[in-house]
Amino acid sequence: MTAPAFERSPAPRGPVVRGLSAGGFTIDGETYQAALLTPEGARAWQDAPPLAELIPAHVETVLALDPQPEFLILGTGAHQAFPPRAFVRALEERGIGVEAMDSRAAARTWGILRAEERWIVAALLPL
């Protein structure tokens, strides 16, 4: 009987979150307090607002992806919280869903869904 052969699938394109700490997110060797992620790359989220003040303009750079992302994974910080309803409604009107969860869960979810090659974006508020 021949043993099965296993092959590793190629890694999906885009940034990989490799670590989480109070200092931030380690993504492809860089540490970010807050981050915006697309399948094409990661960048520091310099103007990350408090969750209660979040508006679509704060995440426009990732929403402008072509083709449009399926949805935004929103890391809400150290604890799960709900974003402003107006923010969610504005994105849904554009056909972009919003999945809110604490930032640790959002970072893990990013990795799982990118491994499935889902066309998504993420905004991770500081831990």
Rank of each mutant, 00 (worst) to 15 (best):
107 A>Q: 02
32 Y>V: 02
57 A>V: 09
55 I>A: 14
27 I>V: 15
72 L>K: 01
62 V>C: 07
59 V>D: 08
4 P>E: 01
91 L>T: 00
8 R>K: 13
63 L>Y: 05
122 A>D: 04
2 T>W: 04
109 T>I: 02
68 Q>C: 09
94 R>S: 00
26 T>A: 11
56 P>R: 11
28 D>F: 09
24 G>H: 10
65 L>E: 08
29 G>H: 11
97 G>S: 02
121 V>Y: 08
80 Q>A: 13
40 E>H: 14
68 Q>R: 15
21 S>V: 08
52 A>I: 10
100 A>P: 03
86 A>G: 00
68 Q>G: 08
112 I>K: 05
28 D>Q: 06
45 W>S: 12
7 E>I: 15
19 G>E: 11
96 I>C: 06
65 L>Q: 14
40 E>R: 14
109 T>D: 02
9 S>I: 11
60 E>I: 00
85 R>V: 12
119 W>N: 04
27 I>N: 08
46 Q>S: 13
52 A>K: 14
92 E>Y: 00
116 E>D: 15
117 E>G: 07
85 R>D: 10
11 A>E: 09
7 E>C: 11
69 P>N: 11
109 T>M: 01
125 L>H: 07
47 D>Q: 14
117 E>P: 01
57 A>L: 08
24 G>D: 03
59 V>N: 07
6 F>E: 02
16 V>T: 13
102 D>G: 06
23 G>E: 15
41 G>Y: 13
78 A>K: 14
29 G>N: 08
66 D>L: 10
34 A>M: 09
49 P>L: 09
37 L>Q: 03
39 P>F: 07
67 P>D: 08
8 R>Q: 14
28 D>Y: 07
39 P>N: 12
9 S>M: 15
63 L>H: 06
54 L>W: 07
93 E>D: 13
70 E>A: 14
47 D>N: 13
106 A>M: 03
27 I>D: 05
21 S>I: 10
67 P>K: 11
102 D>I: 01
97 G>M: 04
74 L>Q: 04
104 R>V: 04
99 E>W: 00
40 E>A: 15
124 L>D: 05
48 A>E: 12
80 Q>V: 10
95 G>A: 02
74 L>H: 04
59 V>L: 08
85 R>L: 11
87 F>W: 06
29 G>L: 12
109 T>H: 02
120 I>S: 01
40 E>V: 00
70 E>W: 05
63 L>G: 10
37 L>P: 06
15 P>Q: 08
103 S>N: 05
36 L>V: 12
117 E>M: 13
67 P>M: 10
3 A>W: 01
94 R>F: 00
63 L>Q: 06
94 R>E: 09
96 I>T: 02
97 G>Y: 01
80 Q>E: 09
51 L>A: 10
125 L>S: 03
45 W>N: 12
9 S>D: 09
26 T>S: 10
54 L>E: 05
122 A>M: 04
85 R>T: 12
33 Q>E: 13
2 T>L: 13
36 L>G: 07
70 E>N: 09
24 G>L: 10
72 L>I: 04
60 E>P: 00
61 T>H: 01
46 Q>I: 07
117 E>Y: 13
44 A>V: 07
7 E>A: 14
